[in-house]
Amino acid sequence: MATDNLTSTPTLMQNQTAEPALILSLNNVEVIYDHVSLAIKGVSIDVPQGAMVALLGANGAGKSTTLKSISGLLRPERGLVTRGEVQFLGQNIDALAPQERVKLGIVHVLEGRRVFEHMTPDENLVAASAVRGTRQDMLRNKDMVYSYFPRLHQRRTAQSGYLSGGEQQMLAIGRALMTQPKLLMLDEPSLGLAPFLVAEIFDIVRRINKEEGLSVLLVEQNAIAALEVVSHGYLIENGRVVMHDSAEAMKKNPDIQEFYLGGTEGRSFHDIKHYSRRKRWLT
């Protein structure tokens, strides 16, 4: 008797529709500062391996706190994850110190272009490489950084404190790449930079993502620039995620257009004033 092949169909369909593996997952994370101030309230975020994801929101919304809950930098600021869990490559990392998270492959580029100003770019890169890897790794990674940021190679012997804001931001990202990360977290990389520099840096980050397979979590107030380079975005307000969608869908959302992409033309002041009462994504 002939047998049919229907039994193999579910497996094939499951393979076709399988979700991409997650490199990072925040599950209902809550952070409190000084045992009193609730900074983020049940935040859940997923970053697929090899993806670029944006966390958008106004100043003070909880974006930087979310990144620090991942990198482990809350404790120096008297912050604490009091609920939920942070998973990296399927491992709960809540109990790990910041340096242990770096060794796992998590790197956090802090807001404000923090580099060693008294050292040259070349010395900054070498210093960052001490976190992990061999001398051969250091030389290879430095060549990679200079290939993505040729301007840094041109200024490699200058004192870093005399670099422009854009060059310092490139150096901060370059230092992060020297740790051989699997997840690159960028906190407000566009802050204080001219639009053409923002576009240049974001384009380089997108190239690194595609060519190196590096996962990126990008925190930004500049939603216009961020949504041009990421695949998905999360919108956080008052410590809560209030929207999650593809970048294309978020760009088309009328409320996102109005309040985060500058599309206020034709809207009355009365509508804008009562925005908090009428957010469609919270209903």
Rank of each mutant, 00 (worst) to 15 (best):
A2W: 06
N5T: 15
N5A: 07
N5Y: 02
L6Y: 06
S8K: 13
A18P: 13
A18D: 14
I23M: 12
L24R: 06
N27R: 14
N27D: 15
E30Y: 13
V31P: 12
I32S: 05
I32M: 09
V36P: 00
I40P: 13
G50S: 10
A58D: 13
L73D: 10
E77Y: 11
R78F: 14
L80Y: 10
G84F: 07
E85Q: 14
E85S: 15
E85K: 14
E85G: 12
L89H: 02
L89M: 08
G90N: 03
Q91L: 07
A95V: 05
A97N: 01
R101E: 00
V107E: 12
V107F: 03
R113K: 14
H118E: 13
M119L: 15
D122N: 14
V126L: 11
A130S: 07
V131G: 00
G133T: 01
T134H: 01
T134Y: 01
R135E: 09
M138G: 08
N141M: 06
K142D: 01
F149T: 03
P150L: 02
S160M: 06
Y162R: 14
G165D: 02
G165I: 04
E167G: 08
G174E: 01
G174H: 00
R175Q: 04
L177F: 08
Q180N: 14
P181S: 06
K182S: 09
L183P: 00
E188R: 05
S190N: 06
S190T: 12
L191D: 09
G192D: 05
E200F: 07
E200Y: 07
E200A: 07
R207V: 05
E212L: 15
L217H: 03
L218K: 07
A225H: 08
L235N: 04
I236G: 05
N238D: 12
N238P: 08
N238L: 13
G239N: 06
V241M: 03
V241Q: 02
M243Q: 10
D245F: 02
S246H: 11
A247L: 10
M250C: 08
M250G: 06
K252F: 04
D255F: 14
I256H: 02
L261K: 09
S268I: 07
Y275L: 09
S276Y: 07
R278S: 09
K279P: 00
R280P: 00
R280C: 01
W281R: 00
